[in-house]
Amino acid sequence: MSSTMIDLFLRSLWETVLMTGASGAISFVFGLPLGLALVVTDRGGIAQNLWVNRILGSIVNGFRAVPFIILLVALIPLTRLIAGTSIGTWAAIVPLSIAATPYYARIAEVSLREVDRGLIEAVRAMGGSRWTIVREVLVPEAMPGIVAGFTVTLVTLVGASAMAGAIGAGGLGDLAIRYGYQRFETSVMIAVVSVLIVMVCALQWAGDRLVARLDRRVA
């Protein structure tokens, strides 16, 4: 590979890291509260409100039903509003975050739902408020699942960011399509795929390590 190619490669790597990291962080910040809201407003939840629950559930399902590539294009007006442009890495972070947030919300919801109801009852019985239950029971007890789910979301985002090349976002996936596929540069394709594999493995490994450290449910 030439030095321009290596520069291009490194820039693409950075773009992928940036897209994955930024949209991952945003989907965590919004997805976790959304997942919590889905759990607490559901029937038998600590803040049962079935109307809110249905509306949130429908919004989440709506966004999850739309294929990402369509979402990417459909959200262009919104992207322009938020990022100031509809082209480039930062522009891609908007649709990536919007797709990943409901995805992560569902994953977080599953973990939060698995928290033993007895624990919630115990904290209610000691006079804890709803907020106490969220802070002391739901989130800490579900934390291993919340982190494991976040790892899954990040890995998914690495893959999804490849499609963001469609709006000129760059990234490794885009590099592989333009050089490896369209220009038949097999070495670029192999290099990109290898780096992606290493990246995903590293993410998964780090996530698993963190989960193991957080999980106190077994001795």
Binding site: D116, G118, L119, E121, A122, V123, E136, V137, P140, E141, M143, L214, R216, R217
Partner: peptide, 10 residues
């Protein structure tokens, strides 16, 4: 409680 209901993360 019968099943103790201790918080596992604490």
């Amino acid at each position: 409680f019968q099943h103790f209901n201790l918080l596992s993360a604490k």
